[in-house]
Amino acid sequence: MNFTKFPRRNYLQGATPIEFMPALTKALGNDVKLYIKRDDLLPGSAGGNKTRKLEFCIADAMEKGADTIITCGAVQSNHARLTASWSAKEGLDCHLILEERVKGSYKEEASGNNFLFELLGVKSIGVVAGGSDMMGEMEKKAAELTAAGKKPYIIPGGASNAIGAMGYAVCAEETMAQLNEMRLVVDHIIVPSGSAGTHAGMMVGMTGVNGNIPISGVNVSRPKDVQEEIVYKLAVETAEKLEVKGGVAREGIVCFDQYVGPGYSLPTDSMVEAVNLFAKTEAILLDPVYSGKAAAGLIDLVRKGHFAKGSTVLFLHTGGSPALYAYMDTFRQA
């Protein structure tokens, strides 16, 4: 894969660590060794996976002469936080459109990422009802800003287009280089699957480097069939952009939807258990929306014997711990 022909900012500071999780491995048993890829340690205000995607998206915006970034997400969006972070670093204005996917969940004075939007100097926050046409809302904002003399650039939710997903094709290549250096054989990779850029990018990258490691996504919102099609469509677009020969096989796109619970961002008992287990065994903070539910899936799959005895499984930690502070009541009541 050749990334050099695409504009890219230099936000990464080397590879993120791959670490063994001995205490969690022991706690779960079943003779499955658990490792973690620490993308929660990526640069940016409090870190997280969107930094990889924004290296490409913001570079594309700047090459096109933009002075303003518009993006969207849920009310506690990690993507919105990191977009605001890198916009501030680059001297770009940032405007957010937040989708209130759970009615009444947006609170102007809320903690977590909501507070960080303010601290990072976001120019405006528009809040719309769940199910709104988010691209349409961002385009309205772009028209308003253009009329005011600005040069806006729209980054889709999660930076999950073919430009952003390239960041996770890079991650797959980086991961394989680390595993080869460590002489570590990994039998399976588990990733959170939401806006699909991380999952699709990892699939494309693993195909592009002939890594031959199966990747499964744990859904955070949608049913299995819907999510798999979204991931596959984006993987095809990303593979075409990177000229990955043969593309990505549809049968390789696998998602688990049993851990979503009542809906996106709504707490589940298994998520609470996963966050507590990771914190108390490995001192690793997950987030309640993405990595927490993905880890709940990982834990359940290990317990159920989904992975063969003696397997080694790598969990991709996408970050997001600032959102924990907006869920303190959930954990204190558990």
Results as ranks from 00 to 15, higher is better:
149 G>T: 13
170 V>C: 13
178 Q>E: 15
285 L>V: 02
39 D>E: 15
306 H>I: 06
287 D>G: 01
81 R>C: 05
188 H>C: 08
102 V>H: 11
274 A>Q: 12
235 A>F: 09
189 I>Y: 05
171 C>F: 00
173 E>C: 06
178 Q>A: 10
121 G>K: 11
126 G>M: 11
192 P>D: 03
13 Q>P: 04
41 L>T: 15
39 D>N: 14
190 I>G: 09
281 T>K: 15
325 Y>P: 01
46 A>L: 14
71 T>F: 14
115 F>R: 12
317 H>D: 06
304 K>D: 03
325 Y>C: 04
272 V>N: 10
63 E>N: 13
18 I>R: 13
289 V>A: 04
201 G>P: 02
83 T>L: 14
162 A>D: 15
331 F>T: 01
193 S>K: 00
29 G>V: 09
218 V>L: 10
277 L>V: 02
181 E>C: 11
88 A>Y: 01
258 Q>D: 15
186 V>H: 05
190 I>N: 02
111 S>K: 07
312 T>L: 05
43 P>F: 11
10 N>K: 15
314 L>I: 00
210 N>M: 08
56 F>K: 01
197 G>P: 00
286 L>E: 10
10 N>C: 10
17 P>S: 06
118 E>W: 06
326 A>T: 02
187 D>T: 07
46 A>S: 09
97 I>Y: 04
83 T>V: 15
78 N>E: 07
95 H>F: 03
224 K>T: 12
22 P>I: 07
126 G>P: 00
324 L>Y: 00
289 V>T: 11
228 E>R: 00
5 K>E: 13
14 G>D: 05
316 L>E: 11
198 T>C: 04
68 T>S: 14
193 S>M: 03
307 F>Q: 09
29 G>D: 12
307 F>D: 10
226 V>S: 06
22 P>L: 08
157 G>R: 08
207 T>F: 06
79 H>T: 02
70 I>Y: 09
227 Q>F: 14
192 P>V: 00
77 S>T: 15
276 N>H: 14
42 L>D: 09
48 G>R: 09
279 A>F: 03
191 V>C: 00
124 S>W: 07
300 D>W: 11
97 I>H: 05
11 Y>H: 14
6 F>M: 03
